[in-house]
Simulated scan of single mutants.
Amino acid sequence: MYLDEICEYCITLPGVEETQPFGPDHIVYKIKGKMFLLVGIEETPIRFNVKCNPERAIQLREDFPHAVLPGYHMNKKHWNTVVMGKGLSRTQCEDMIRHSYELVAK
């Protein structure tokens, strides 16, 4: 997925707010005032942080060691960093985004 595709997907989810609380280099997507995705605008390759339940986070990191990493500058138990261009399909990325959204929306 490209940056614009990540942003377009996030904003289509119900009740989502797009913000830039960390400055113009990052976009944060929130539901109910809580962050579920953080993406850097200028990063190459594109990478984003998403929330994940701890068991699933570990499994994703094991299944995709070059594409799913412990959350950069986040609680590594609950957040993953997803790196684009490392073998994940669009569907897999969208599933991780939706999982994060649903965890935070609860």
Score class of each variant (00 low, 15 high):
residue 22 F to D: 04
residue 68 V to T: 13
residue 17 E to I: 02
residue 10 C to A: 12
residue 82 V to K: 08
residue 1 M to Q: 00
residue 67 A to S: 09
residue 99 H to A: 11
residue 103 L to W: 00
residue 15 G to P: 04
residue 65 P to K: 04
residue 89 S to G: 09
residue 60 L to M: 11
residue 95 D to C: 13
residue 93 C to Y: 02
residue 8 E to V: 03
residue 90 R to P: 00
residue 70 P to F: 03
residue 73 H to D: 01
residue 88 L to Q: 08
residue 58 I to E: 15
residue 63 D to M: 03
residue 25 D to Y: 07
residue 5 E to G: 04
residue 94 E to R: 15
residue 104 V to D: 05
residue 81 T to L: 01
residue 85 G to Q: 08
residue 58 I to Y: 04
residue 61 R to Q: 13
residue 105 A to C: 08
residue 56 R to V: 10
residue 96 M to W: 14
residue 73 H to P: 00
residue 95 D to W: 04
residue 5 E to I: 00
residue 41 I to F: 07
residue 87 G to L: 14
residue 15 G to A: 03
residue 49 N to P: 01
residue 84 M to C: 11
residue 90 R to N: 12
residue 104 V to S: 05
residue 26 H to A: 13
residue 83 V to A: 02
residue 90 R to H: 14
residue 64 F to Q: 09
residue 3 L to C: 07
residue 4 D to H: 13
residue 88 L to C: 03
residue 56 R to A: 08
residue 3 L to I: 14
residue 91 T to Y: 10
residue 7 C to A: 10
residue 5 E to T: 05
residue 51 K to Y: 03
residue 72 Y to F: 11
residue 45 P to V: 08
residue 11 I to C: 11
residue 21 P to D: 05
residue 43 E to T: 12
residue 39 V to D: 12
residue 39 V to R: 06
residue 90 R to G: 02
residue 64 F to C: 09
residue 18 E to Q: 15
residue 15 G to E: 12
residue 61 R to N: 01
residue 100 S to Q: 02
residue 65 P to E: 09
residue 12 T to S: 15
residue 71 G to D: 01
residue 93 C to A: 05
residue 62 E to N: 07
residue 36 F to H: 09
residue 77 K to E: 06
residue 105 A to S: 10
residue 31 I to M: 02
residue 83 V to M: 00
residue 49 N to I: 01
residue 27 I to R: 12
residue 18 E to G: 03
residue 34 K to D: 03
residue 3 L to D: 04
residue 93 C to P: 00
residue 16 V to G: 12
residue 99 H to M: 12
residue 102 E to R: 10
residue 91 T to Q: 15
residue 52 C to D: 07
residue 6 I to V: 15
residue 80 N to G: 05
residue 51 K to C: 04
residue 91 T to S: 15
residue 63 D to H: 07
residue 41 I to M: 14
residue 18 E to C: 11
residue 10 C to Y: 10
residue 101 Y to F: 12
residue 45 P to W: 06
residue 69 L to A: 13
residue 17 E to C: 01
residue 67 A to F: 04
residue 18 E to V: 13
residue 25 D to A: 11
residue 8 E to Y: 04
residue 38 L to W: 02
residue 64 F to H: 15
residue 60 L to Q: 04
residue 35 M to W: 00
residue 47 R to D: 07
residue 5 E to V: 00
residue 57 A to L: 10
residue 42 E to D: 15
residue 10 C to I: 05
residue 39 V to N: 15
residue 55 E to Y: 09
residue 42 E to R: 07
residue 32 K to H: 14
residue 36 F to Y: 08
residue 44 T to H: 09
residue 70 P to C: 07
residue 51 K to S: 01
residue 25 D to N: 14
residue 19 T to H: 05
residue 36 F to A: 03
residue 46 I to D: 06
residue 55 E to F: 07
residue 37 L to Y: 00
residue 73 H to M: 01
residue 43 E to H: 11
residue 9 Y to S: 12
residue 69 L to W: 14
residue 106 K to I: 06
residue 90 R to W: 04
residue 53 N to R: 11
residue 43 E to W: 11
residue 86 K to P: 00
residue 37 L to V: 06
residue 30 K to N: 12
residue 22 F to M: 08
residue 39 V to S: 07
residue 97 I to N: 09
residue 99 H to L: 05
residue 3 L to T: 05
residue 66 H to I: 00
residue 4 D to Y: 11
residue 59 Q to I: 13
residue 29 Y to A: 10
residue 97 I to A: 13
